[in-house]
Design a protein around this nucleic acid. Structure first.
Length: 918
RNA sequence: GGUCGCUUAGCUCAGCUGGUAGAGCGCCACGUUCACAUCGUGGAUGUCGCAGGUUCAAGUCCUGCAGCGACCACCA
C-alpha cells in the first residue's frame, strides 16, 4: 500500500522531485541515433531563446507551457520529440544592462575600453545569465538540457560567420552609406523593425525661406499663378514656405524641392533660395517624390537626416550635409550658435531665431508616428552613415512562396497575410551595430585599401602582404544570429548527425511581436541554406495582459511572477490556467491584483485530480488488478459508459492538439475528468468498490477505474505533468501488462483501441437525466435529505423502467430513490418532462405546495407550447421542408410530436390538480 | 493613409464547417455519513455593439456605421 496521501495537493512536495526524476531518467534527451538508427519520427521544436539576462515573466510561462504540451504529447506518441533550449546574447539589451550597472559605479564603457567591457559583460552573463533556463524547469519544461545553446557559443559563432561570408559572396551583403535609424542613446544603428513607431502629438511648422532678388520675377510669377506659399516679407523680399515637424533639420537643408508637374512653382525651379540662420544659399529642384497637395507643395530637403530627402539628393545632385553628432546634438556643420545643442533644444532655438526674423509662418498641431528605439525608448534619428546591409528581396522570394503555396501554415491563419505583406514589401536589412557585445563583423581592412571578408581571421593582406589589418569594429544585429538558430544549434555548418536528424523541425511557437524580427528571417535562412524551411507550422500565441488590457511589464508593475505562482499554486495549476485561457488568436488576461483568483481554477482542478486519484488508490487497494479484457463480461452499465466516454475524450484531445486548439483540449479534459469521471463514475461505483460487495462486480469496477485513471492521466499529462505522473506512478497495474517507467513516456491513448458503446451512452444519459431531475424536484419541493421517494416513469421508452430498476441501488444513493414504477402518474406530486418523450412523476403527498405546483405546471406548459408553435411554424414553411437536409427536418418533426405530447400530459396533470386551463 | 482584429451573462472570455447560446470566476439557496469546502447538490443571469442584406434558418456569411485595439506605411 502506498503511503498516506495528503488530502490537499501540495505541489512543492511532488513537483521538484518528479522533475529531478525525469532528468535523471534522461527522458528529455533525444540523441540523433533515435532518428538515424532507430528510425523514430523526429518532432522538433527549437525554443525562442530568451535573452540571456532575462527574468522569467508570464509571457515566457505561456510560451513554455504551449511548447511543453506539444513536446510531451508527441513524445508520448512515440516520436523522437526534441525541444532544444538556449539563450540569446541579445546585443543591445544585454549591453545596456551592463552599461547601467557600470554607470551606477560612475563608469562608462569607454573608460574600460572594448576588451575589458566585453569581459565585464561575459562576467555578468556567467554570473546571472541563463538563470531563466533554470526557471523554465520549475514550470516543467521538458527541454533537452544537454543541448542548451547560447548564440555566442563558438559553434554558433562559426555559423554566423559562414552565413555572413556566404551572403557576401552571393552579393547579398553589402556596405554602403545610407540613411539608417540611429539611436542617439545606444549610439548604434537599428534595423527598420527595431525602430518602433509611436503615435506622437507634435507640430507641423511652416517656415519661410527668403528668395534672392534674382528670383523676384519668378516668385512674382509663381505668386500670380496662385501659389499661396509664395509671398513677400515686410521688407519686400519674396519668400517661399516649407513645412517640417523637425525644424532643427533645416540647418542641414541643401535644397528645396517641388514636383516637376507642379505648374505653380515651375518658374522657380533652378532658382536659389536663402537658407536662414546659415548664410547658405541652396537651389530649388524638381523631384517627382514631392506631393503637390501636401502643405505648400514645397519640401525642404535635408539629405543627411531624412531617407526621402536622401533619395531626392541622389536624384538631383544636391549636397549632403550632416549637422548632427551621433548623440543627436548639433554638430560643427551647424551654425556656431547652435553647436552642441541637443536636437530638441536646437529645435526651440531655431524656431525662436526664425521667429525673430519673421520667418515662422505658423504652427499646426500634428500627430504622426515617431520611431523609438525598441530597447531604450529614445526617439530614433534618421542618420546618414556607413553600414552593412543584407539585400533581402532574393531571400524573401522562396519564403514568400512557402506561405502562398501552403508549405508553411500559420495559426491563427490571419498572420499569413501579415507575413506575406511584409515579405512582399521587404526592405534591405541594416545588420551592423555600433556595439561591442555580439558577433563582430568578419571583415578586415588593410591600409592598402583591401577589404577582406573571411571565415577565418586573416593574418595578412592577400594584396599587399601587410599584417596591419583592422577588423571592422561593428558587431552584427543580434537577430542575425537568431535567424540561424534552427540549424546553428545542431552544429551547422558542419555536417553533423544532428543536422541530418533534426533539420528541418516541425513547429515554431512564439509571440506575434517577433514575426518579422525572427520567424520570417529564420524561414529565409532555411531556404537559403537548406532549400527548405526550418519548420512548417507557425503557432503564434497571444500576449499576457492585466485586467485593463495592458501588457504585463516590469515598468508598469502589473506583472505576475510565474515562480511565485508555481510556489503557491503549483506548475500544474499555472499551466492549466494558461492553456485553458489561450484560445487560438486571443490574448490572456490575468488579474495581477488577485493572483489567487487568477489561478484558482487551475489549482482547484489539480487538487481535484489529486483527490480523485487519492480516493481511487484507497478504494482499489494494492491487490493486483485484472486486465479489462478479463472482466469484460462483468462490466456494468456505468463501466461501459465511462469507457465509451474515455474514448471520446481521447479522440477529442488528439484532434484538438493536432489543430493547436489547446484551450479546447484543456477544457474538454476538465469537463470529462471532473464532470464525468469524478461527479458520476466515481460516485456511482463507490458501493461496488467497497469490500463487502459482489466480488466479480468489484473486480470489474477496479479494472475499469484503473483503466480510466490510467488513460485520463495520460491525456492530462501534457498539460498537467506533475500531479498526473505522481498519481500514475502509484496506480496498481493490471497483471501481465508492461508498465512504462514513467508516465512521461507512456503511450498516448488515441482512443482507437476502444469501441464506442452507444447503448451504454444512451442508457446512462437517461439515468443521469433522471437523477438530476429527481434532485431538482426534491430541492424545489423541499423534500428532506433523508426521505426516500418512489418515482413514476412513463413515456415512449418503456425499457427505461427496467434499466432504472436495475440500478436502484445507485439511484438510492444519488437521488434517494427507493422504487420505480411505470406510468401511474396520478395523484399529487412533482412532475418533470424529460427528453425523449419521457416523463417523471414523483408522488409527494403531503409535501407538495399545490398552488405552487399549479403555477409551475402552467409556466412549463406555456413554454412547451411556445416552443411547439415555433416548431410547427417552421414545419409549415414549404421552403424549410423542401430545402433543409432531411435529418434536420425529421428532427424538427420529432421535436414537435414530443412537445405536443409533453404539453398534453402536463395539461392533464394540471387538470387533475384542479388548475384551470393555461 | 493601408491592412487586420475585437464588440456574447456582473467580470475575463469560448463558440471550428450557419439549425432558437456556453465555460471559469463571481452571485443565491441548501449541505460537512469517511476522495476533495481548493468540495457537493440545486439555482438565477444575455433584445450575442447598431442598421441593413443573403438564407427555409445568422452570434455564426455579406455590406455599412459606431466604439476599442493591433500592425504596416518615405507625405515633408
Amino acid at each position: 500500500m502506498s503511503e498516506e496521501l495528503a488530502s490537499r495537493l501540495d505541489p512543492q512536495a511532488i513537483e521538484p522531485a518528479r522533475y529531478a526524476k525525469w532528468q535523471e531518467g534522461g527522458y528529455f534527451h533525444v540523441p540523433s541515433s533515435r532518428v538515424l538508427e532507430d528510425a523514430a519520427d523526429p518532432y522538433v521544436i527549437v525554443i525562442p531563446p530568451p535573452n540571456v539576462t532575462a527574468v522569467l515573466h508570464m509571457g515566457h510561462g505561456l510560451n513554455t507551457t504551449i511548447q511543453d504540451v506539444l513536446i510531451r504529447w508527441r513524445r508520448m506518441q512515440g516520436a523522437a520529440a526534441l525541444w532544444v533550449p538556449g539563450t540569446d546574447h541579445a546585443g543591445i539589451a544585454t549591453q545596456n544592462v551592463v552599461e547601467r550597472e557600470l554607470a551606477a559605479k560612475g563608469c562608462m564603457r569607454d573608460d574600460l575600453g572594448r576588451d575589458r567591457f566585453v569581459t565585464a559583460i561575459w562576467n555578468h552573463v556567467h554570473e546571472t545569465g541563463g538563470a531563466i533556463l533554470e526557471q523554465l524547469k520549475a514550470i516543467g519544461a521538458s527541454c533537452d538540457w544537454d543541448r542548451t545553446r547560447f548564440t555566442l557559443d563558438d559553434e554558433l559563432s562559426r555559423a554566423v560567420r559562414e552565413v555572413f561570408v556566404h551572403l557576401h559572396e552571393r552579393g547579398l551583403v553589402y556596405r554602403g552609406e545610407y540613411i539608417i535609424n540611429w539611436c542617439p542613446r545606444c549610439l548604434t544603428a537599428l534595423s527598420n523593425e527595431e525602430a518602433e513607431g509611436q503615435e506622437t502629438q507634435g507640430s507641423l511648422w511652416h517656415l519661410r525661406y527668403p528668395l534672392p532678388e534674382a528670383a523676384n520675377s519668378a516668385a512674382r510669377a509663381a505668386s500670380e499663378a496662385g501659389a499661396d506659399a509664395i509671398g513677400q516679407l515686410d521688407d519686400g523680399r519674396w519668400y517661399l514656405t516649407v513645412s517640417t515637424t523637425r525644424p532643427e533639420t533645416m540647418l542641414g537643408d541643401t535644397g528645396v524641392a517641388v514636383n516637376p508637374k507642379d505648374e505653380r512653382y515651375a518658374p522657380l525651379v533652378g532658382c536659389d533660395v536663402e537658407l536662414p540662420l546659415t548664410g547658405r544659399v541652396i537651389p530649388i529642384v524638381a523631384d517627382a517624390h514631392v506631393d503637390p497637395d501636401f502643405g505648400s507643395g514645397m519640401v525642404k530637403v535635408t539629405p543627411a537626416h531624412d531617407p526621402n530627402d536622401f533619395d531626392i539628393a541622389n536624384r538631383t545632385g544636391l549636397e549632403v550635409l550632416n549637422v548632427m553628432t551621433p548623440e543627436a546634438s548639433m554638430s560643427e556643420n551647424a551654425p556656431e550658435v547652435f553647436r552642441g545643442m541637443d536636437r530638441l533644444d536646437a529645435r526651440k532655438a531655431v524656431l525662436v531665431a526664425l521667429g525673430e526674423q519673421g520667418l515662422v509662418a505658423g504652427e499646426d498641431a500634428y500627430t504622426r508616428s515617431v520611431p523609438h528605439c525598441y530597447r531604450c525608448g529614445t526617439v530614433v534619428e534618421p542618420r546618414l552613415s556607413l553600414q552593412w546591409f543584407v539585400k533581402m528581396k532574393p531571400l524573401a522570394e522562396p519564403a514568400l512562396r512557402a506561405s502562398q503555396d501552403g508549405t508553411i501554415t500559420f495559426t491563427p491563419s490571419h498572420w499569413q497575410r501579415v507575413y506575406e505583406h511584409w515579405m512582399e514589401n521587404i526592405r534591405d536589412w541594416c545588420i551592423s551595430r555600433q556595439l561591442w557585445w555580439g558577433h563582430r563583423i568578419p571583415v578586415w581592412y588593410c591600409a592598402c585599401g583591401e577589404e577582406i571578408v573571411s571565415r577565418e581571421d586573416p593574418t595578412d593582406c592577400p594584396k599587399c602582404g601587410s599584417a596591419e589589418l583592422e577588423q571592422d569594429p561593428d558587431v552584427l544585429d543580434t537577430w542575425f544570429s537568431s535567424q540561424l538558430w534552427p540549424f546553428s544549434v545542431f552544429g551547422w555548418p558542419e555536417k553533423t548527425p544532428d543536422v541530418e536528424a533534426f533539420y528541418p523541425g516541425n513547429a515554431m511557437v512564439t509571440a506575434p511581436e517577433i514575426l518579422f524580427f525572427w520567424v520570417a528571417r529564420m524561414i529565409m535562412m532555411g531556404y537559403e541554406f537548406f532549400g527548405e524551411p526550418p519548420f512548417t507550422e507557425v503557432y503564434l500565441h497571444g500576449t499576457v495582459r492585466d485586467m485593463k488590457g495592458r501588457k504585463m511589464s516590469k515598468s508598469l508593475g502589473n506583472g505576475i511572477d510565474p515562480l511565485e505562482v508555481v510556489n503557491t499554486f503549483g506548475a500544474d495549476a499555472m499551466r492549466y490556467t494558461l492553456v485553458s485561457q489561450a484560445a487560438v488568436g486571443t490574448d490572456i488576461s490575468l488579474d495581477h491584483e488577485d493572483v489567487e483568483a487568477a489561478f484558482a481554477n487551475g489549482r482547484n482542478f489539480a487538487n481535484k485530480i489529486w483527490n480523485a486519484g487519492r480516493f481511487a488508490l484507497l478504494s482499489v487497494g494494492d491487490a493486483p488488478v485484472k486486465p479489462l479484457s478479463e472482466v469484460e463480461p462483468d462490466l456494468a452499465l456505468e463501466d461501459r459508459w465511462i469507457l465509451s466516454r474515455l474514448r471520446d475524450a481521447s479522440q477529442n484531445a488528439t484532434r484538438g492538439l493536432e489543430r493547436y486548439r489547446l484551450h479546447d483540449v484543456a477544457e474538454s479534459l476538465y469537463h470529462f475528468f471532473w464532470g464525468e469521471v469524478c461527479d458520476w463514475y466515481l460516485e456511482w461505483v463507490k458501493a461496488r468498490l467497497a469490500d463487502d460487495g459482489d466480488a466479480s462486480s468489484r473486480e470489474a469496477a477496479r479494472s475499469t477505474l484503473v483503466t480510466v485513471l490510467d488513460e485520463s492521466f495520460r491525456l492530462l499529462h501534457p498539460i498537467m505533468p506533475f500531479v498526473t505522473a505522481e498519481l500514475w506512478s502509484r496506480l496498481p497495474w493490471p497483471e501481465g501488462k508492461e508498465r512504462p517507467e514513467d508516465l512521461i513516456i507512456a503511450s498516448w491513448p488515441d482512443g482507437a483501441d476502444r469501441y464506442e458503446d452507444e447503448d451504454a451512452e444512451r442508457d446512462f444519459a437517461a439515468l443521469r437525466e433522471l437523477i438530476v431531475e429527481v434532485r431538482r424536484l426534491r430541492k424545489e419541493y423541499g423534500v428532506a435529505e433523508g426521505e426516500r421517494i418512489r418515482i413514476h416513469l412513463s413515456g415512449a421508452d418503456a425499457a427505461l423502467v427496467d434499466t432504472v430498476s436495475a440500478h436502484l441501488p445507485a439511484l438510492e444513493r444519488l437521488a434517494r430513490v427507493n422504487g420505480v414504477e411505470q406510468g401511474g402518474s396520478s395523484g399529487i406530486g412533482a412532475h418533470a418532462v424529460l427528453g425523449g418523450g419521457r416523463e417523471l412523476f414523483v408522488p409527494l403527498e403531503g409535501v407538495i405546495d399545490l398552488e405552487r405546483e399549479r403555477s409551475r405546471l402552467g409556466e412549463q406548459i406555456a413554454r412547451l407550447q411556445a416552443h411547439g408553435e415555433a416548431t410547427a411554424k417552421k414545419l409549415q414553411n414549404e421552403n424549410f421542408v423542401s430545402r433543409a437536409p432531411e435529418d434536420v427536418v425529421q428532427k424538427e418533426r420529432d421535436k414537435l410530436v414530443q412537445l405536443e405530447q409533453q404539453a398534453n400530459t402536463l395539461q392533464q396533470k394540471l387538470n387533475e390538480l384542479g388548475g384551470g386551463k393555461s
